[in-house]
Amino acid sequence: MKKDPIILFFVGALVAVMLFAGIRAARNSRAIMPAHGLMGAEAPDFELKTVDGADLRLSSLRGKAVLLNFWATYCGPCKVEMPWFVELQKEYGPQGFQIIGVAMDDATTEEIAKFAKDLGVNYPILLGKEAVGLSYGGVSVLPTTFFLDRNGKVIAREFGLQSRSVFVDHIKQALGQGGSVQAQK
C-alpha cells in the first residue's frame, strides 16, 4: 500500500499538536502557578496552622516585609539557612520584618516543632499544605524562599541554599532600603 505523503504529514502534525495541547492541559489542570509568574505579583494568600496550633494568615502581615521560607526536616540545606534566619529575624524584626517558615513535610507536628526548637527558631513555623505549595509554583525544590515587600508583593525568590548576603540584600529590598541583588529569575 502506497502511503500518501500529504496524509502522513497531516497525521504527524496532528500528533504534534495533540502533544502540545495535552501537556498544556495537564499543566493547567494541576493549577500550578509558575514561580516566575509570581514576581511582582501579590503573594497568594493562605491560612495555615502553626506548630503551636494557632492560625496564621499571610495577609495579616501586610505592612511588614516578609521572608517566606518553604523547608522540610529532611532537607540538609534548609538546616543551614535556619540559624541565619534566626539572626536575621533578630536584626531586622524591629524594622518591620517577619520570617515565616512553611514546613512541607511528612513528619509529625511534634517532630517539626522539635526540629525547629533544636535550631532555636524564633519565627512562626507553619504546617504546609500541598495546595499552598502549588499556589507558589509547586515548591519542587527545598529550600524555596520568597521575599515580599510591605504591600505583600513578591519582589524576589531563591531556590536552594544561598549565601547569607543574598538574603540580606533581598530583605533590605523588601524593607524598602535598597539592596544590591536584583529580583531573581
Binding site: 502522513l8 504529514f9 504527524g12 500528533v15 504534534a16 502533544l19 499543566r27
Partner: peptide
C-alpha cells in the same frame, strides 16, 4: 521520505518543548 522526516522532526520538537516546559 522527506515527509516522514518532517513528521519525525515535528514530534521531536514536541518532545523538546515538553522537556522545556517541565
Amino acid at each position: 521520505m522527506k515527509v516522514t522526516f518532517a513528521c519525525a522532526l515535528l514530534l521531536m520538537c514536541g518532545c523538546v518543548w515538553a522537556q522545556e516546559e517541565f
